[in-house]
Computed example of a mutant assay.
Amino acid sequence: MNNLMLQFKRMKHYFIASALVFTVSMVLGAGYSEQFQAFIEMQLKGMEQWAQSITKTENPQWSLFWLIFWNNISKSLLVIGVGAFFGVIPLFFLIANGLILGYVIAVSAQQQSVLFVIKGILPHGILEIPAVVFACAFGLRMGVLVMKSLWGLVNPTRSLVYKEEFRSFAKALIPVFVIIIITLTVAALIESTVTYWLIKP
C-alpha cells in the first residue's frame, strides 16, 4: 500500500498531463471536427456496427454491458502495457477518445439537447472517463521509465536508480489493474442500465 501511494505521488504530473490532453482533444473534437472528420467518421462507423449487433440480441442490455465491459477494460489495461513503446499509444488513445467524445457531445447537444448529453454521458462518464485517463497516465509513465532504463544502459551511474524506480512501478501495477477493472465494471453496469434507461426513446 505504501508503494502504491508513493507511485500515485510520482504520477501527479502524468495525471495532469493526461487530463489536459484529453480535455484539449475534446475541445478540438467539439469545435474543429472538420479537421479530423475522416478519422472520427471511421471510429463512429465501428461504434454504429456494434450498436446494430446489440439490438439484434435477445437481451440488448446484457449484451451492451459485456461489450462495454470488455472493450473498456481490455483497451485500458492494454494501453498501460503498450505504453512501454515510449508512451506513444497512450497519448494517441487519449487524443482519439477525446476527439470522438467532444464531437459526439457537440452533435448531440445540437440535434437533441444539453440535457440529453448530460443524461447520456454523466451517469457512467463520471467513473469511466477518469478511469481511462488514469490508465493512460500509467501508460505514459511506463514509456518514460522504459526510456530511462534504456538511458541507464549508456549511463551506468544511474542504471541502479532507474531499475529500482521501474521495479517499484511494476509492483504497483496489480493493484492499479484491480482499481481500473472495478471502476470500469461499475461504469459499464451504470451505462447498460441507468444511461440506457435515460436515453431510451
Score class of each variant (00 low, 15 high):
151 W>S: 13
34 E>D: 05
26 M>A: 07
32 Y>T: 01
170 A>C: 13
155 N>K: 14
113 S>A: 00
46 G>L: 04
90 P>L: 01
183 T>W: 09
120 G>H: 09
181 I>A: 05
137 A>I: 12
199 I>N: 12
146 V>Q: 15
122 L>P: 03
178 V>F: 10
113 S>F: 00
64 L>E: 02
111 Q>M: 12
70 W>F: 11
48 E>Q: 12
185 T>R: 14
7 Q>E: 14
59 N>G: 02
77 L>H: 05
104 V>P: 12
188 A>S: 14
169 F>Y: 15
40 I>S: 03
158 R>D: 14
145 L>Q: 13
47 M>L: 15
55 T>G: 07
143 G>R: 11
97 N>E: 03
19 A>Y: 08
186 V>S: 09
114 V>S: 13
25 S>D: 00
191 E>A: 06
162 Y>W: 15
80 I>A: 05
185 T>D: 08
118 I>A: 07
191 E>D: 06
3 N>C: 09
132 V>H: 00
6 L>K: 15
76 S>V: 04
150 L>W: 01
166 F>E: 04
4 L>K: 08
180 I>F: 14
57 T>L: 15
152 G>D: 11
16 I>T: 08
11 M>T: 10
103 Y>G: 00
129 I>G: 11
104 V>N: 04
23 T>H: 05
51 A>V: 05
122 L>V: 04
174 I>Y: 15
34 E>I: 01
115 L>D: 10
133 V>H: 01
132 V>W: 01
71 N>V: 06
73 I>D: 04
134 F>Q: 07
135 A>W: 09
130 P>F: 01
91 L>R: 04
44 L>K: 13
195 T>K: 12
167 R>T: 13
7 Q>L: 07
150 L>A: 01
7 Q>G: 05
148 K>W: 09
73 I>F: 12
166 F>A: 11
129 I>F: 08
103 Y>A: 01
126 I>M: 13
116 F>I: 00
16 I>D: 03
136 C>S: 10
77 L>P: 07
173 L>A: 06
71 N>F: 06
75 K>M: 07
194 V>H: 02
114 V>M: 10
40 I>M: 06
154 V>H: 15
12 K>E: 08
134 F>L: 12
186 V>Y: 09
47 M>R: 10
142 M>S: 15
92 F>D: 07
83 G>P: 08
138 F>H: 11
162 Y>I: 12
66 W>E: 10
34 E>S: 12
175 P>S: 08
90 P>R: 03
25 S>Y: 11
32 Y>K: 07
108 S>Y: 03
182 I>V: 11
172 A>F: 09
188 A>K: 01
6 L>M: 12
71 N>A: 05
178 V>K: 15
181 I>R: 10
50 W>R: 02
121 I>S: 09
71 N>C: 06
101 L>N: 06
140 L>N: 08
168 S>W: 01
59 N>V: 05
132 V>T: 08
137 A>R: 10
47 M>N: 13
193 T>M: 02
66 W>I: 02
141 R>L: 10
199 I>Q: 11
100 I>F: 09
196 Y>D: 01
152 G>W: 10
125 G>Q: 02
131 A>L: 04
58 E>C: 03
115 L>E: 04
173 L>C: 03
156 P>F: 11
185 T>G: 15
116 F>M: 02
194 V>N: 11
43 Q>S: 05
144 V>H: 15
24 V>A: 13
130 P>W: 02
132 V>R: 04
82 V>I: 15
55 T>M: 14
180 I>P: 11
86 F>P: 04
4 L>W: 14
